[in-house]
Simulated scan of single mutants.
Amino acid sequence: MPEVPRFRRVLIKPALAKLTKTSRTIPSPEGIISVKLKRKGKSGINARLRLPKVVMGTFIWDDKRYTSHEGSQRLNLFQ
Rank of each mutant, 00 (worst) to 15 (best):
residue 37 L to A: 03
residue 37 L to Q: 02
residue 37 L to K: 03
residue 38 K to L: 08
residue 38 K to E: 11
residue 38 K to N: 06
residue 38 K to I: 04
residue 38 K to Y: 01
residue 38 K to A: 14
residue 39 R to C: 05
residue 39 R to T: 08
residue 40 K to Y: 04
residue 41 G to P: 02
residue 41 G to C: 04
residue 41 G to N: 04
residue 42 K to H: 05
residue 42 K to Y: 04
residue 42 K to Q: 09
residue 43 S to D: 04
residue 43 S to P: 04
residue 44 G to D: 04
residue 44 G to W: 05
residue 45 I to K: 00
residue 46 N to L: 05
residue 46 N to K: 08
residue 46 N to F: 09
residue 48 R to E: 13
residue 48 R to A: 11
residue 49 L to I: 15
residue 50 R to S: 14
residue 50 R to Y: 09
residue 50 R to I: 11
residue 50 R to V: 14
residue 50 R to F: 10
residue 51 L to N: 06
residue 51 L to T: 13
residue 51 L to I: 09
residue 51 L to Y: 09
residue 51 L to E: 09
residue 51 L to K: 06
residue 52 P to M: 01
residue 53 K to E: 05
residue 53 K to S: 08
residue 54 V to M: 10
residue 54 V to C: 00
residue 54 V to S: 14
residue 55 V to R: 02
residue 56 M to V: 09
residue 57 G to M: 06
residue 57 G to A: 04
residue 57 G to D: 01
residue 58 T to Y: 02
residue 58 T to W: 00
residue 58 T to M: 08
residue 58 T to K: 10
residue 58 T to F: 00
residue 59 F to N: 01
residue 59 F to W: 03
residue 59 F to M: 07
residue 60 I to R: 12
residue 61 W to M: 10
residue 61 W to K: 06
residue 62 D to Y: 01
residue 62 D to F: 04
residue 62 D to T: 01
residue 62 D to C: 07
residue 63 D to P: 03
residue 64 K to S: 10
residue 65 R to D: 07
residue 65 R to S: 11
residue 66 Y to P: 15
residue 66 Y to K: 03
residue 66 Y to F: 15
residue 66 Y to G: 12
residue 67 T to F: 01
residue 67 T to L: 14
residue 67 T to Y: 07
residue 68 S to Q: 05
residue 69 H to T: 12
residue 69 H to C: 05
residue 69 H to S: 14
residue 70 E to G: 09
residue 70 E to I: 01
residue 71 G to D: 02
residue 72 S to F: 14
residue 72 S to W: 10
residue 72 S to I: 12
residue 73 Q to W: 05
residue 73 Q to L: 03
